[in-house]
Design a binder for these strands. Structure first.
Length: 444
RNA sequence: GGAGAGGUGGCCGAGUGGUCGAAGGCGCUCCCCUGCUAAGGGAGUAUAGGCUCAAAAGGCUUAUCGAGGGUUCGAAUCCCUCCCUCUCCGCCA
């Protein structure tokens, strides 16, 4: 959520910047709401002040021994009638306007940082490694689906039987390779990059999803969980299905970042650096026909997430480091990649600045997103009321960052395609061999 | 799932309708006192808003005692719903 005071003070500019993100900000509606709220609120508070005042006087008279039918008290009670009538109306009005304003604010995306390209074009920041093509392989390359299926270790048909489209099943060495990748990533981030390994719930409540910005705007991207809670009343045969507002996490950013929701953390406990390996669940609504083949776009995939919760003055420094941490995984795996700075209209809802890391996929002859690293500044912190006690002892909003470090399934795709051999076998990257019981090849 | 007990400020803990945003203690900050230390004395010490002020300071004010409703002129206190914690029993990976 944006700072309402700042938004008000820079309304025109904000509207322009949001326009670059494809968001139309209704300035006059906003101004109307804010002004209306001001007057309704002042009015309400005046009435409350009156009420408290008279109530206190009655209290003091009662304590002094005056009866409830005392004339003076009766007089006060009379005055109170009209105050209370006005107050109840005022509260209804205030509630309504605050609700409207909240709804308005909650769906506005974050403002892009000044270094974010505005021309609608992503910027290549750097390239790493030498990309391999069919020429450099010296044989006709296969995509990860053929490789996995030929090995007999990747099985979409059975997964479809079990669940449906966009699920997968892996077996044997491939399943182990998948696990090895995740373990390797976790170990690297905890041992070398200083993150704290975290185990988190895979079901999150709506407050958490709201905190990181998935709700209320992107509910259709999520899987929602209903838990049956039966309420039986005497003589009633109907059972009411009560909704339990849980969602399958679309990323562990949700539980990790929300760990500081409604907290004021002490200055000395930041930066907080957390990592977790979790499954991620995405409904992929509206992506019919995209990446239907293979492991690229699934309803369920594993991801090692990096989250940093930092001092506002340190967040851009932290973003560069965080990208570096994610890159390190690809470097150790010796997978070619590039880093891309996203332009404002490609960024996610909560981000102020985002770098994508794209790994080279020879079979597609292209770079594909494998990590997205964002600084959300105070956008999520404001929604979450996540604060720290600053140098002068005052509570101040934190900055939050998150990035994939990395998406395990897509990383597996990259390994399969980049490490394939002419005979259909897969070489195991050196850094993964200790996680694979020392073997250096996956063969049919 | 059944039975019971609870959820109050950074922490402990009092408070069952009225000068309560909340006694007391601990902790913390500042000051005083004291050769040093220990002890002692005093003041301060929640969060988010609004108004005031050139700004800061300050002042005034509203809300918040797990959450949300209700009763009442007035609720931490009474009633209802929900959430959470603890104890015992049952069930279970």
């Amino acid at each position: 959520m944006l700072d309402i005071h700042l938004l008000r003070a820079n309304l025109g500019n904000a509207a322009k910047e949001l326009d670059l993100r494809g968001f139309y900000l209704d300035m006059s509606y906003f101004q109307k709401l804010v002004e209306e709220r001001g007057s309704v609120r002042t009015n309400t508070q005046k009435l409350e002040e009156n009420r408290n005042n008279i109530s206190g006087r009655i209290g003091r008279l009662r304590v002094a021994g005056h009866g409830i039918d005392d004339g003076e008290i009766g007089n006060f009670l009379n005055q109170m009638k009209s105050i209370l009538a006005q107050l109840s109306q005022a509260k209804v009005d205030l509630d309504k306007i605050e609700c409207e304003l909240q709804q308005f604010m909650e769906v506005i995306p974050n403002l892009p940082h000044s270094t974010v390209p505005k021309e609608g074009k992503n910027e290549d920041v750097r390239y790493w490694g030498t990309k391999k093509t069919s020429d450099s392989f010296g044989f006709s390359i296969k995509d990860h689906v053929s490789i996995g299926e030929n090995l007999g270790l990747l099985d979409f048909e059975t997964a479809t039987k079990l669940s449906g489209a966009r699920f997968s099943m892996m077996k044997g060495g491939l399943a182990r390779l998948h696990r090895a990748l995740a373990q390797f990533m976790l170990d690297t981030h905890t041992i070398e990059h200083g993150y704290t390994e975290t185990y988190v719930p895979y079901l999150a409540n709506s407050e958490s999803l709201r905190g990181t910005g998935q709700l209320p705007k992107f509910e259709e991207d999520l899987f929602k969980i209903y838990r049956k809670k039966y309420e039986k009343e005497e003589g009633e045969t109907d059972q009411k299905l009560q909704e339990e507002n849980w969602y399958l996490i679309p990323t562990s950013e949700v539980p990790l970042t929300n760990s500081v929701r409604n907290e004021i953390v002490p200055l000395e406990s930041i930066p907080i650096k957390l990592t977790a390996l979790t499954p991620c669940f995405r409904s992929e609504a509206g992506s019919y026909g995209k990446d239907t083949r293979g492991l690229i776009r699934q309803h369920q995939f594993d991801k090692v997430e990096l989250v940093q919760i930092v001092h506002p003055q340190k967040s851009y420094e932290a973003l560069e480091q965080l990208v570096g941490h994610a890159e390190m995984i690809l470097q150790k795996l010796e997978l070619p990649y590039r880093v891309v700075l996203l332009c404002s209209n490609d960024m996610g809802f909560s981000a102020a600045k985002t770098y994508d890391i794209e790994v080279w996929l020879p079979a597609q002859n292209t770079y594909r997103e494998i990590s997205s690293c964002s600084n959300c500044e105070a956008f999520q912190a404001r929604r979450m009321k996540a604060r720290f006690r600053n140098e002068s002892g005052k509570p101040e909003l934190l900055h939050t960052l998150n990035g994939s470090g990395l998406a395990v399934g897509r990383c597996l795709v990259a390994v399969l395609e980049n490490y394939q051999n002419a005979d259909g076998s897969i070489s195991i990257p050196k850094v993964l061999q200790p996680y694979m019981g020392g073997i250096d090849r996956l063969v049919a």
